[in-house]
Design a protein around this nucleic acid. Sequence first.
DNA 1: TTCTATGATTTTAT
DNA 2: ATAAAATCATAGAA
Length: 429
Amino acid sequence: RMLQTLAGVNLAGHSVQGGMALPPPPHGHEGADGDGRKQDIGDILHQIMTITDQSLDEAQAKKHALNCHRMKPALFSVLCEIKEKTGLSIRGAQEEDPPDPQLMRLDNMLLAEGVSGPEKGGGSAAAAAAAAASGGSSDNSIEHSDYRAKLTQIRQIYHTELEKYEQACNEFTTHVMNLLREQSRTRPISPKEIERMVGIIHRKFSSIQMQLKQSTCEAVMILRSRFLDARRKRRNFSKQATEILNEYFYSHLSNPYPSEEAKEELAKKCSITVSQVSNWFGNKRIRYKKNIGKFQEEANLYAAKTAVTAAHAVAAAVQNNQTNSPTTPNSGSSGSFNLPNSGDMFMNMQSLNGDSYQGSQVGANVQSQVDTLRHVINQTGGYSDGLGGNSLYSPHNLNANGGWQDATTPSSVTSPTEGPGSVHSDTSN
DNA sequence: TTCTATGATTTTAT
DNA sequence: ATAAAATCATAGAA
């Protein structure tokens, strides 16, 4: 009806081409003169068709003429009235803009993957620098930087595309807004409507944007899966790293649970991550416990490795300890894993020094050395047997309800070769 | 190729 | 959250 009205106005005002007869303009009631109306419509269609052929100037001129028409205010008010009625339904129909869950999901993922988030570290430049810096250090970092480089690539594409879309969207929006503003001189257009129009445009564009995001997500997923595969291809730690880890493990055999700080330090020393350290210790503990026999040799090796320094340190510590604080033979826990173990250690030290010794007053540092020593003692055999240490171990060995202690002790069981005496003297030195 | 070692992941329990 | 245990998957040796 509005179209008719407009067309009618147009015709009425200017008897455009073909000089058609005026239909009584906006009386807007159907029925009545059916024939005439059909004719009108035909004319109007014709009119519209010809309009497309007109030049811009002509159209401009017509618009101007329309604006100057004497009937314009009246017609305008009629249009306002009509709008008044139709506007209600429109207003009711809109207003909701539930954030698309799909889009949200994509957004979240892109953000999580660092594609849409703030550019970190200068992007490709940083990645390249990292790659260059890592050089031949490790395959892992190379893979990692490779991954990052690819991610940056995706990221760049994503951003440029997004920018393009945004630009296009803005252009289109302003274009439409201009158009509407222009038209608002001819027909009533509320700001709300413009807003709505803009909203529609944005929605349209966001669907395009979603496609972009979707494909970006896919690309990231593919890259990621490839990277994960690569990461699954584990590389053994360097010999040096294993060495360090083993040293720690065997020198803390009674409590091989490095603290967070210790883990960090180990990670740094081994140039691996903290979680890798955790993994390593997790694996080591369980595997050691599962088959101690298999680890005997290794244990010996590392125990012996630290035994000399440990012995010195312990001696010093004990000396120190003795002089500083003579006794307090209770409360066995020295930060050790469990009580039985503390007792264990206590006995060992007693035997070693032939003197009373309180685990409770020895720092963790000493404890590790004690572990080492004890291990050497146990490994080399005779000592505990000779001194009845075995009887001490066995019960503790058995009573362990899943604790770490039952793992440490069997070492005393496997005790081959070597003369007890020599061992004793060695370790006590 | 098979077999073992080993780093990582998953499951389960606390 | 952390640890144990089970399991996976590959590296590397045989």
